[in-house]
Nucleic acid binder design. Sequence first.
DNA 1: TGGGATTTGTTCGTATGTATT
DNA 2: GAATACATACGAACAAATCCC
Lengths: 231, 231
Amino acid sequence: MAKDSPRTDSAYQALKQAIIEQAIRPGTKLPEDLIGEQFGMSRTLVRAVLARLTAEGLVDSTSRKSAMVASPTMTEAREVFEVRRALESEVVRLIVKRWKPEYGVTLETLVRDEDAARQKNDDRLSIRLSGEFHARLAEMSGNSLLGRYLGEIVSRCSLILATFGRPHSSECAVDEHRELIAAFRSQDIARAVSAMTAHLDAVERRALIAHDDEEPAPLAEVLATYFANNN
Amino acid sequence: MAKDSPRTDSAYQALKQAIIEQAIRPGTKLPEDLIGEQFGMSRTLVRAVLARLTAEGLVDSTSRKSAMVASPTMTEAREVFEVRRALESEVVRLIVKRWKPEYGVTLETLVRDEDAARQKNDDRLSIRLSGEFHARLAEMSGNSLLGRYLGEIVSRCSLILATFGRPHSSECAVDEHRELIAAFRSQDIARAVSAMTAHLDAVERRALIAHDDEEPAPLAEVLATYFANNN
DNA sequence: TGGGATTTGTTCGTATGTATT
DNA sequence: GAATACATACGAACAAATCCC
Protein backbone atom coordinates (compact mmCIF):
# COMPACT_ATOMS: atom_id res chain seq x y z
CA MET A 1 0.00 0.00 0.00
CA ALA A 2 1.70 3.18 1.24
CA LYS A 3 -0.14 5.30 -1.25
CA ASP A 4 -2.62 7.15 0.94
CA SER A 5 -2.90 10.88 1.29
CA PRO A 6 -2.72 12.18 4.87
CA ARG A 7 -6.45 12.73 5.15
CA THR A 8 -7.53 9.38 3.83
CA ASP A 9 -5.07 7.69 6.12
CA SER A 10 -6.33 9.44 9.23
CA ALA A 11 -9.90 8.62 8.27
CA TYR A 12 -8.90 5.00 7.73
CA GLN A 13 -7.21 4.77 11.10
CA ALA A 14 -10.09 6.47 12.87
CA LEU A 15 -12.77 4.27 11.34
CA LYS A 16 -10.74 1.15 11.96
CA GLN A 17 -10.15 2.00 15.61
CA ALA A 18 -13.81 2.85 16.06
CA ILE A 19 -14.80 -0.54 14.68
CA ILE A 20 -12.16 -2.49 16.57
CA GLU A 21 -12.93 -0.87 19.88
CA GLN A 22 -16.59 -1.64 19.32
CA ALA A 23 -17.64 2.01 19.41
CA ILE A 24 -19.70 1.32 16.30
CA ARG A 25 -21.36 -2.04 16.28
CA PRO A 26 -21.60 -4.60 13.48
CA GLY A 27 -24.42 -3.79 11.08
CA THR A 28 -24.16 -0.03 11.51
CA LYS A 29 -24.55 1.71 8.17
CA LEU A 30 -21.67 3.85 6.95
CA PRO A 31 -23.06 6.31 4.37
CA GLU A 32 -20.37 7.95 2.26
CA ASP A 33 -21.87 11.41 2.72
CA LEU A 34 -21.86 11.31 6.48
CA ILE A 35 -18.30 10.02 6.73
CA GLY A 36 -17.05 12.52 4.20
CA GLU A 37 -18.64 15.32 6.16
CA GLN A 38 -17.15 14.14 9.45
CA PHE A 39 -13.65 13.85 8.08
CA GLY A 40 -13.84 16.76 5.68
CA MET A 41 -13.27 14.87 2.49
CA SER A 42 -15.13 14.06 -0.69
CA ARG A 43 -17.01 10.89 -1.39
CA THR A 44 -14.31 9.72 -3.77
CA LEU A 45 -11.80 9.48 -0.97
CA VAL A 46 -14.33 7.96 1.37
CA ARG A 47 -14.90 5.25 -1.19
CA ALA A 48 -11.21 4.43 -1.20
CA VAL A 49 -11.18 4.13 2.57
CA LEU A 50 -14.27 1.93 2.61
CA ALA A 51 -12.84 -0.23 -0.15
CA ARG A 52 -9.75 -0.84 1.89
CA LEU A 53 -11.70 -1.69 5.02
CA THR A 54 -13.86 -3.99 2.91
CA ALA A 55 -10.81 -5.81 1.64
CA GLU A 56 -9.71 -6.32 5.23
CA GLY A 57 -13.07 -7.80 6.16
CA LEU A 58 -14.05 -5.04 8.58
CA VAL A 59 -16.76 -3.57 6.32
CA ASP A 60 -19.37 -5.16 4.07
CA SER A 61 -20.00 -3.34 0.78
CA THR A 62 -22.68 -4.78 -1.39
CA SER A 63 -23.18 -2.92 -4.61
CA ARG A 64 -25.58 0.03 -4.57
CA LYS A 65 -26.33 -0.30 -0.90
CA SER A 66 -24.79 1.51 2.02
CA ALA A 67 -21.59 0.04 3.31
CA MET A 68 -21.91 -1.22 6.85
CA VAL A 69 -19.74 -2.52 9.62
CA ALA A 70 -19.28 -6.22 8.86
CA SER A 71 -21.28 -8.79 10.81
CA PRO A 72 -19.15 -11.92 10.81
CA THR A 73 -20.99 -15.21 10.66
CA MET A 74 -20.16 -18.07 12.97
CA THR A 75 -18.53 -19.89 10.06
CA GLU A 76 -16.30 -16.95 9.25
CA ALA A 77 -15.41 -16.66 12.89
CA ARG A 78 -14.22 -20.23 13.04
CA GLU A 79 -12.24 -19.80 9.83
CA VAL A 80 -10.53 -16.72 11.17
CA PHE A 81 -9.47 -18.53 14.31
CA GLU A 82 -8.25 -21.53 12.33
CA VAL A 83 -5.98 -19.36 10.22
CA ARG A 84 -4.94 -17.34 13.23
CA ARG A 85 -3.70 -20.45 15.00
CA ALA A 86 -1.60 -21.44 12.02
CA LEU A 87 -0.04 -18.01 11.64
CA GLU A 88 0.57 -17.28 15.29
CA SER A 89 2.18 -20.70 15.75
CA GLU A 90 4.64 -19.72 13.05
CA VAL A 91 5.18 -16.34 14.73
CA VAL A 92 6.01 -18.05 17.97
CA ARG A 93 8.51 -20.38 16.32
CA LEU A 94 10.24 -17.46 14.62
CA ILE A 95 10.34 -15.40 17.81
CA VAL A 96 12.02 -18.15 19.79
CA LYS A 97 14.61 -18.54 17.05
CA ARG A 98 15.34 -14.82 16.84
CA TRP A 99 14.81 -13.97 20.49
CA LYS A 100 16.55 -10.97 22.02
CA PRO A 101 16.34 -10.11 25.74
CA GLU A 102 15.04 -6.60 25.05
CA TYR A 103 11.93 -8.13 23.49
CA GLY A 104 11.06 -9.42 26.93
CA VAL A 105 11.24 -5.93 28.40
CA THR A 106 9.01 -4.48 25.67
CA LEU A 107 6.42 -7.20 26.08
CA GLU A 108 6.45 -7.00 29.85
CA THR A 109 5.79 -3.26 29.76
CA LEU A 110 2.84 -3.85 27.48
CA VAL A 111 1.40 -6.53 29.72
CA ARG A 112 1.77 -4.27 32.75
CA ASP A 113 -0.14 -1.49 30.96
CA GLU A 114 -2.77 -4.01 29.95
CA ASP A 115 -3.15 -5.10 33.53
CA ALA A 116 -3.52 -1.50 34.69
CA ALA A 117 -6.16 -0.76 32.05
CA ARG A 118 -8.05 -3.86 33.12
CA GLN A 119 -7.96 -2.79 36.76
CA LYS A 120 -9.37 0.61 35.86
CA ASN A 121 -12.07 -0.94 33.66
CA ASP A 122 -10.86 1.16 30.75
CA ASP A 123 -12.33 -1.05 28.02
CA ARG A 124 -11.09 0.92 25.04
CA LEU A 125 -7.52 1.00 26.26
CA SER A 126 -7.67 -2.61 27.31
CA ILE A 127 -8.82 -3.80 23.90
CA ARG A 128 -6.25 -1.63 22.17
CA LEU A 129 -3.36 -2.89 24.28
CA SER A 130 -4.16 -6.57 24.00
CA GLY A 131 -4.35 -6.10 20.25
CA GLU A 132 -1.03 -4.32 20.33
CA PHE A 133 0.56 -7.20 22.21
CA HIS A 134 -0.20 -9.51 19.32
CA ALA A 135 0.81 -6.90 16.77
CA ARG A 136 4.19 -6.62 18.50
CA LEU A 137 4.66 -10.37 18.45
CA ALA A 138 4.04 -10.37 14.72
CA GLU A 139 6.56 -7.56 14.34
CA MET A 140 9.17 -9.44 16.37
CA SER A 141 8.81 -12.40 14.04
CA GLY A 142 10.68 -10.25 11.55
CA ASN A 143 8.27 -11.12 8.75
CA SER A 144 6.25 -8.13 7.59
CA LEU A 145 3.78 -10.18 5.55
CA LEU A 146 2.98 -12.23 8.62
CA GLY A 147 2.49 -8.91 10.38
CA ARG A 148 0.05 -7.69 7.76
CA TYR A 149 -2.06 -10.84 7.77
CA LEU A 150 -2.14 -11.02 11.54
CA GLY A 151 -3.02 -7.34 11.79
CA GLU A 152 -6.08 -8.05 9.69
CA ILE A 153 -6.96 -11.15 11.61
CA VAL A 154 -6.64 -9.60 15.04
CA SER A 155 -8.89 -6.76 13.92
CA ARG A 156 -11.46 -9.21 12.69
CA CYS A 157 -11.31 -11.06 15.98
CA SER A 158 -12.34 -7.85 17.74
CA LEU A 159 -15.30 -7.67 15.43
CA ILE A 160 -16.15 -11.29 16.13
CA LEU A 161 -16.02 -10.56 19.82
CA ALA A 162 -18.37 -7.62 19.29
CA THR A 163 -20.78 -9.88 17.45
CA PHE A 164 -20.75 -13.05 19.49
CA GLY A 165 -18.94 -12.25 22.71
CA ARG A 166 -19.61 -10.31 25.86
CA PRO A 167 -19.72 -6.61 24.88
CA HIS A 168 -16.81 -4.38 25.83
CA SER A 169 -14.66 -7.20 27.07
CA SER A 170 -11.13 -7.53 25.87
CA GLU A 171 -10.28 -10.77 24.18
CA CYS A 172 -7.05 -11.60 25.95
CA ALA A 173 -6.25 -12.61 29.48
CA VAL A 174 -3.17 -10.99 30.95
CA ASP A 175 -1.94 -14.20 32.57
CA GLU A 176 -1.87 -15.97 29.26
CA HIS A 177 0.30 -13.23 27.81
CA ARG A 178 2.67 -13.58 30.75
CA GLU A 179 2.99 -17.33 30.20
CA LEU A 180 3.89 -16.64 26.58
CA ILE A 181 6.72 -14.32 27.59
CA ALA A 182 8.02 -16.91 30.02
CA ALA A 183 7.96 -19.53 27.28
CA PHE A 184 9.95 -17.29 24.94
CA ARG A 185 12.57 -16.74 27.61
CA SER A 186 12.91 -20.47 28.19
CA GLN A 187 13.75 -20.86 24.47
CA ASP A 188 11.50 -23.90 24.33
CA ILE A 189 9.68 -23.92 21.00
CA ALA A 190 7.24 -26.66 21.93
CA ARG A 191 6.28 -24.90 25.14
CA ALA A 192 5.85 -21.57 23.36
CA VAL A 193 3.71 -23.06 20.60
CA SER A 194 1.49 -24.86 23.05
CA ALA A 195 1.16 -21.73 25.18
CA MET A 196 0.04 -19.83 22.11
CA THR A 197 -2.36 -22.56 21.06
CA ALA A 198 -3.87 -22.68 24.52
CA HIS A 199 -4.16 -18.91 24.58
CA LEU A 200 -5.94 -18.79 21.24
CA ASP A 201 -8.27 -21.60 22.22
CA ALA A 202 -9.21 -19.58 25.28
CA VAL A 203 -9.67 -16.44 23.21
CA GLU A 204 -11.96 -18.31 20.85
CA ARG A 205 -13.95 -19.73 23.72
CA ARG A 206 -14.40 -16.26 25.20
CA ALA A 207 -15.27 -14.77 21.83
CA LEU A 208 -17.95 -17.23 20.83
CA ILE A 209 -20.36 -17.01 23.74
CA ALA A 210 -23.81 -15.48 23.46
CA HIS A 211 -24.07 -11.74 23.92
CA ASP A 212 -26.58 -9.14 25.06
CA ASP A 213 -27.67 -6.39 22.75
CA GLU A 214 -27.00 -2.79 23.55
CA GLU A 215 -28.09 0.69 22.64
CA PRO A 216 -25.93 1.91 19.73
CA ALA A 217 -24.51 5.45 20.02
CA PRO A 218 -25.13 8.00 17.23
CA LEU A 219 -22.58 7.44 14.47
CA ALA A 220 -21.65 11.08 13.86
CA GLU A 221 -20.85 11.64 17.52
CA VAL A 222 -18.64 8.57 17.74
CA LEU A 223 -16.72 9.51 14.61
CA ALA A 224 -16.12 13.02 15.90
CA THR A 225 -14.45 11.55 18.97
CA TYR A 226 -12.22 9.27 16.97
CA PHE A 227 -11.30 12.02 14.54
CA ALA A 228 -10.16 14.29 17.38
CA ASN A 229 -8.14 11.46 18.94
CA ASN A 230 -6.15 10.91 15.79
CA ASN A 231 -5.01 14.48 15.11
CA MET B 1 -15.55 -8.03 -1.48
CA ALA B 2 -18.11 -9.24 -3.99
CA LYS B 3 -18.88 -5.73 -5.05
CA ASP B 4 -17.34 -5.52 -8.51
CA SER B 5 -19.19 -4.59 -11.64
CA PRO B 6 -18.77 -7.04 -14.52
CA ARG B 7 -16.31 -4.83 -16.40
CA THR B 8 -14.03 -4.11 -13.47
CA ASP B 9 -13.96 -7.76 -12.63
CA SER B 10 -12.95 -8.84 -16.11
CA ALA B 11 -10.24 -6.18 -16.17
CA TYR B 12 -9.02 -7.36 -12.80
CA GLN B 13 -8.88 -10.97 -13.92
CA ALA B 14 -7.15 -10.09 -17.16
CA LEU B 15 -4.48 -7.94 -15.57
CA LYS B 16 -3.89 -10.47 -12.85
CA GLN B 17 -3.49 -13.33 -15.32
CA ALA B 18 -1.18 -11.25 -17.47
CA ILE B 19 1.03 -10.53 -14.48
CA ILE B 20 0.95 -14.07 -13.13
CA GLU B 21 1.75 -15.65 -16.46
CA GLN B 22 4.64 -13.27 -16.84
CA ALA B 23 3.29 -11.68 -20.00
CA ILE B 24 4.05 -8.29 -18.47
CA ARG B 25 7.25 -8.19 -16.50
CA PRO B 26 7.88 -6.66 -13.08
CA GLY B 27 8.58 -2.94 -13.32
CA THR B 28 6.31 -2.39 -16.32
CA LYS B 29 4.35 0.82 -15.88
CA LEU B 30 0.55 0.60 -15.85
CA PRO B 31 -0.84 4.05 -16.79
CA GLU B 32 -4.48 4.45 -15.91
CA ASP B 33 -5.34 5.93 -19.30
CA LEU B 34 -3.89 3.11 -21.31
CA ILE B 35 -5.58 0.43 -19.26
CA GLY B 36 -8.89 2.25 -19.32
CA GLU B 37 -8.66 2.49 -23.09
CA GLN B 38 -7.83 -1.19 -23.48
CA PHE B 39 -10.69 -2.35 -21.30
CA GLY B 40 -13.15 0.36 -22.28
CA MET B 41 -13.65 1.87 -18.89
CA SER B 42 -13.06 5.14 -17.15
CA ARG B 43 -10.13 5.94 -14.93
CA THR B 44 -12.31 5.75 -11.85
CA LEU B 45 -12.82 2.05 -12.39
CA VAL B 46 -9.24 1.46 -13.40
CA ARG B 47 -8.13 3.00 -10.14
CA ALA B 48 -10.30 0.57 -8.21
CA VAL B 49 -8.77 -2.36 -10.06
CA LEU B 50 -5.23 -1.14 -9.48
CA ALA B 51 -5.98 -0.53 -5.81
CA ARG B 52 -7.09 -4.09 -5.42
CA LEU B 53 -4.04 -5.48 -7.18
CA THR B 54 -1.89 -3.22 -5.02
CA ALA B 55 -3.47 -4.61 -1.87
CA GLU B 56 -2.65 -8.10 -3.11
CA GLY B 57 0.98 -7.21 -3.66
CA LEU B 58 0.93 -7.65 -7.42
CA VAL B 59 1.20 -3.93 -8.22
CA ASP B 60 3.20 -1.13 -6.64
CA SER B 61 1.41 2.21 -6.39
CA THR B 62 3.42 5.09 -5.03
CA SER B 63 1.56 8.35 -4.81
CA ARG B 64 1.59 10.60 -7.87
CA LYS B 65 3.56 8.14 -9.92
CA SER B 66 2.37 5.53 -12.37
CA ALA B 67 1.42 2.21 -10.90
CA MET B 68 3.70 -0.57 -12.04
CA VAL B 69 3.92 -4.33 -11.86
CA ALA B 70 5.51 -5.07 -8.49
CA SER B 71 9.17 -6.04 -8.34
CA PRO B 72 9.51 -8.19 -5.25
CA THR B 73 12.75 -7.90 -3.33
CA MET B 74 14.67 -10.93 -2.16
CA THR B 75 13.53 -10.20 1.40
CA GLU B 76 9.88 -10.08 0.39
CA ALA B 77 10.35 -13.29 -1.52
CA ARG B 78 11.65 -15.10 1.51
CA GLU B 79 8.82 -13.71 3.63
CA VAL B 80 6.23 -14.89 1.16
CA PHE B 81 7.65 -18.41 1.19
CA GLU B 82 7.84 -18.45 4.97
CA VAL B 83 4.14 -17.60 5.28
CA ARG B 84 3.27 -19.95 2.47
CA ARG B 85 4.85 -22.87 4.27
CA ALA B 86 2.85 -22.12 7.41
CA LEU B 87 -0.45 -21.83 5.56
CA GLU B 88 -0.03 -24.76 3.22
CA SER B 89 0.98 -26.99 6.12
CA GLU B 90 -2.34 -26.14 7.71
CA VAL B 91 -4.13 -26.80 4.43
CA VAL B 92 -2.56 -30.22 4.23
CA ARG B 93 -3.59 -31.10 7.77
CA LEU B 94 -7.16 -30.04 7.10
CA ILE B 95 -7.32 -31.94 3.83
CA VAL B 96 -6.20 -35.20 5.39
CA LYS B 97 -8.82 -34.77 8.11
CA ARG B 98 -11.62 -34.02 5.65
CA TRP B 99 -10.44 -36.23 2.81
CA LYS B 100 -12.93 -37.61 0.31
CA PRO B 101 -11.97 -40.06 -2.45
CA GLU B 102 -13.36 -37.80 -5.20
CA TYR B 103 -10.76 -35.19 -4.27
CA GLY B 104 -8.14 -37.63 -5.49
CA VAL B 105 -9.82 -37.87 -8.88
CA THR B 106 -10.03 -34.11 -9.27
CA LEU B 107 -6.40 -33.61 -8.34
CA GLU B 108 -5.20 -36.41 -10.54
CA THR B 109 -6.94 -34.94 -13.56
CA LEU B 110 -5.27 -31.62 -12.89
CA VAL B 111 -1.85 -33.21 -12.59
CA ARG B 112 -2.36 -35.10 -15.84
CA ASP B 113 -3.24 -31.86 -17.64
CA GLU B 114 -0.21 -30.23 -16.09
CA ASP B 115 1.98 -33.00 -17.36
CA ALA B 116 0.55 -32.67 -20.85
CA ALA B 117 1.10 -28.91 -20.88
CA ARG B 118 4.67 -29.43 -19.77
CA GLN B 119 5.26 -31.96 -22.57
CA LYS B 120 3.97 -29.49 -25.13
CA ASN B 121 6.06 -26.66 -23.68
CA ASP B 122 2.92 -24.59 -23.24
CA ASP B 123 4.31 -22.25 -20.58
CA ARG B 124 1.19 -20.22 -20.01
CA LEU B 125 -1.02 -23.22 -19.49
CA SER B 126 1.59 -24.93 -17.39
CA ILE B 127 1.91 -21.99 -15.01
CA ARG B 128 -1.84 -21.61 -14.83
CA LEU B 129 -2.46 -25.27 -14.02
CA SER B 130 0.18 -25.60 -11.35
CA GLY B 131 -1.30 -22.51 -9.71
CA GLU B 132 -4.73 -24.06 -9.95
CA PHE B 133 -3.52 -27.21 -8.24
CA HIS B 134 -2.63 -25.21 -5.15
CA ALA B 135 -5.81 -23.17 -5.40
CA ARG B 136 -7.82 -26.39 -5.37
CA LEU B 137 -5.96 -27.66 -2.34
CA ALA B 138 -6.82 -24.47 -0.50
CA GLU B 139 -10.44 -24.90 -1.54
CA MET B 140 -10.52 -28.49 -0.32
CA SER B 141 -9.33 -27.34 3.08
CA GLY B 142 -12.84 -25.96 3.48
CA ASN B 143 -11.57 -22.66 4.86
CA SER B 144 -12.27 -19.76 2.52
CA LEU B 145 -9.99 -17.31 4.31
CA LEU B 146 -7.13 -19.74 3.91
CA GLY B 147 -8.11 -19.87 0.26
CA ARG B 148 -7.98 -16.11 -0.09
CA TYR B 149 -4.60 -15.74 1.55
CA LEU B 150 -3.10 -18.61 -0.39
CA GLY B 151 -4.53 -17.27 -3.64
CA GLU B 152 -2.65 -14.06 -3.03
CA ILE B 153 0.50 -15.83 -2.03
CA VAL B 154 0.57 -18.20 -4.98
CA SER B 155 0.13 -15.23 -7.30
CA ARG B 156 3.01 -13.43 -5.67
CA CYS B 157 5.15 -16.52 -6.03
CA SER B 158 4.65 -16.35 -9.78
CA LEU B 159 5.85 -12.77 -9.68
CA ILE B 160 8.86 -13.81 -7.63
CA LEU B 161 9.63 -16.47 -10.17
CA ALA B 162 9.42 -13.84 -12.92
CA THR B 163 11.86 -11.65 -11.03
CA PHE B 164 14.43 -14.10 -9.75
CA GLY B 165 13.80 -17.39 -11.49
CA ARG B 166 14.29 -18.83 -14.92
CA PRO B 167 11.87 -17.02 -17.25
CA HIS B 168 8.76 -18.84 -18.43
CA SER B 169 9.30 -21.84 -16.23
CA SER B 170 6.52 -23.14 -14.09
CA GLU B 171 7.19 -23.27 -10.40
CA CYS B 172 5.94 -26.74 -9.62
CA ALA B 173 7.22 -30.17 -10.51
CA VAL B 174 4.55 -32.66 -11.47
CA ASP B 175 6.13 -35.50 -9.50
CA GLU B 176 5.94 -33.51 -6.30
CA HIS B 177 2.23 -32.96 -6.84
CA ARG B 178 1.77 -36.69 -7.35
CA GLU B 179 3.54 -37.48 -4.10
CA LEU B 180 1.18 -35.09 -2.32
CA ILE B 181 -1.87 -36.88 -3.66
CA ALA B 182 -0.43 -40.22 -2.56
CA ALA B 183 0.20 -38.83 0.91
CA PHE B 184 -3.40 -37.62 1.18
CA ARG B 185 -4.67 -41.06 0.22
CA SER B 186 -2.51 -42.71 2.84
CA GLN B 187 -4.20 -40.50 5.47
CA ASP B 188 -0.81 -39.90 7.07
CA ILE B 189 -0.67 -36.30 8.29
CA ALA B 190 3.05 -36.32 9.01
CA ARG B 191 3.85 -37.69 5.57
CA ALA B 192 1.56 -35.17 3.87
CA VAL B 193 3.00 -32.23 5.77
CA SER B 194 6.54 -33.24 5.03
CA ALA B 195 5.69 -33.82 1.36
CA MET B 196 4.29 -30.30 1.22
CA THR B 197 7.27 -28.82 3.02
CA ALA B 198 9.68 -30.59 0.69
CA HIS B 199 7.67 -29.42 -2.30
CA LEU B 200 7.70 -25.80 -1.19
CA ASP B 201 11.41 -25.91 -0.40
CA ALA B 202 11.99 -27.14 -3.94
CA VAL B 203 9.73 -24.43 -5.36
CA GLU B 204 11.64 -21.80 -3.42
CA ARG B 205 14.95 -23.17 -4.64
CA ARG B 206 13.76 -23.09 -8.24
CA ALA B 207 12.31 -19.61 -7.82
CA LEU B 208 15.34 -17.93 -6.33
CA ILE B 209 18.00 -18.63 -8.91
CA ALA B 210 19.51 -15.95 -11.11
CA HIS B 211 17.67 -15.14 -14.32
CA ASP B 212 18.40 -13.73 -17.75
CA ASP B 213 16.72 -10.57 -18.93
CA GLU B 214 14.39 -10.58 -21.86
CA GLU B 215 12.76 -8.30 -24.37
CA PRO B 216 9.44 -7.06 -22.95
CA ALA B 217 6.43 -7.15 -25.29
CA PRO B 218 4.36 -3.99 -25.90
CA LEU B 219 1.86 -3.57 -23.08
CA ALA B 220 -1.18 -2.65 -25.17
CA GLU B 221 -0.79 -5.73 -27.34
CA VAL B 222 -0.49 -8.06 -24.38
CA LEU B 223 -3.55 -6.61 -22.69
CA ALA B 224 -5.61 -6.95 -25.85
CA THR B 225 -4.82 -10.67 -25.89
CA TYR B 226 -5.81 -11.16 -22.27
CA PHE B 227 -8.97 -9.12 -22.69
CA ALA B 228 -10.10 -11.32 -25.57
CA ASN B 229 -9.31 -14.49 -23.63
CA ASN B 230 -11.55 -13.50 -20.76
CA ASN B 231 -14.72 -12.69 -22.66
C1' DT C 1 18.45 23.38 -15.81
C1' DG C 2 13.93 24.47 -17.87
C1' DG C 3 9.64 23.83 -20.07
C1' DG C 4 6.19 21.20 -22.40
C1' DA C 5 3.70 16.94 -22.44
C1' DT C 6 1.91 13.41 -19.87
C1' DT C 7 -0.21 11.36 -15.84
C1' DT C 8 -2.28 11.38 -11.56
C1' DG C 9 -5.37 13.62 -7.69
C1' DT C 10 -9.63 15.47 -6.75
C1' DT C 11 -14.09 17.40 -7.13
C1' DC C 12 -18.70 17.52 -8.53
C1' DG C 13 -22.74 16.75 -11.58
C1' DT C 14 -25.76 13.36 -13.58
C1' DA C 15 -27.64 8.73 -13.88
C1' DT C 16 -29.32 4.79 -11.72
C1' DG C 17 -30.64 1.84 -8.35
C1' DT C 18 -32.65 1.04 -3.38
C1' DA C 19 -35.51 1.94 0.62
C1' DT C 20 -39.51 4.03 2.60
C1' DT C 21 -43.99 6.04 3.17
C1' DG D 1 -48.09 -1.08 -5.09
C1' DA D 2 -46.49 3.53 -6.63
C1' DA D 3 -44.07 7.60 -5.87
C1' DT D 4 -40.73 10.08 -3.48
C1' DA D 5 -36.41 10.60 -1.11
C1' DC D 6 -31.96 9.15 -0.68
C1' DA D 7 -27.48 6.83 -1.54
C1' DT D 8 -24.31 5.03 -4.57
C1' DA D 9 -22.09 4.38 -9.52
C1' DC D 10 -19.89 6.47 -12.94
C1' DG D 11 -17.67 9.77 -15.79
C1' DA D 12 -16.03 14.45 -17.46
C1' DA D 13 -13.24 18.18 -16.37
C1' DC D 14 -9.93 20.86 -13.91
C1' DA D 15 -5.72 21.34 -10.94
C1' DA D 16 -1.29 19.85 -9.64
C1' DA D 17 2.65 17.08 -9.80
C1' DT D 18 5.97 14.33 -12.42
C1' DC D 19 8.56 12.84 -16.31
C1' DC D 20 11.28 13.50 -20.33
C1' DC D 21 13.55 15.91 -23.80
